[in-house]
């Protein structure tokens, strides 16, 4: 009997407290700024891709989930500043462990891990993301 009262009291106590869960996806819990979530490929101040296709991210990746292939920037319509850009940039998100080594390795601050974490699909191929998905839109 005493146990029941004690249990009810606990329940009542928690009823009055604020809820621990949030109403996802209508509401999102704030994440720390440095949370290592989904990747983006950033652009520079001129709106050009920061990525120069150096592949250091791919070299640093412990699970080999990044594939980069580079090419020479087209004359007159460059993708990135300088001579070289990545025409192919793919991350296999299912393999990624979000360690952030790619971000550390990047000499251009192109690849960045954001607090975004909505990794949802029911098709495996959706998790193989390319430049179109990763590159932030031009401002």
């Amino acid at each position: 009997m005493g146990g029941l009262v004690k249990g009810l009291a606990t329940t009542l106590k928690y009823l009055r407290r604020p809820r621990a869960t949030v109403d996802y996806p209508a509401k999102e819990r704030p994440y720390p700024e440095r949370f290592r979530g989904l990747h983006i490929l950033d652009r520079d101040a001129e709106g050009l891709e920061r990525c120069v296709g150096c592949e250091l991210c791919a070299a640093a990746c412990p699970v080999h989930c990044i594939t980069v292939e580079a090419a020479e920037n087209p004359v007159g319509a460059p993708y990135s500043a300088g001579e070289r850009y990545a025409w192919r940039y793919e991350i296999d998100l299912l393999r990624c462990i979000f360690c952030g080594y790619c971000e550390e390795a990047c000499p251009e601050d192109a690849i960045q891990l954001t607090p975004r974490h909505d990794l949802l699909s029911n098709k495996r191929e959706d998790f193989l993301v390319g430049k179109d998905w990763l590159t932030v839109p031009r401002q």
Binding site: V52, G53, C54, L56, G82, E83, R84, P107, E108
Partner: peptide
């Protein structure tokens, strides 16, 4: 020091 875009890198 443009090693990232250098083929010799």
């Amino acid at each position: 020091l443009d090693c990232p875009i250098c083929d010799k890198g």
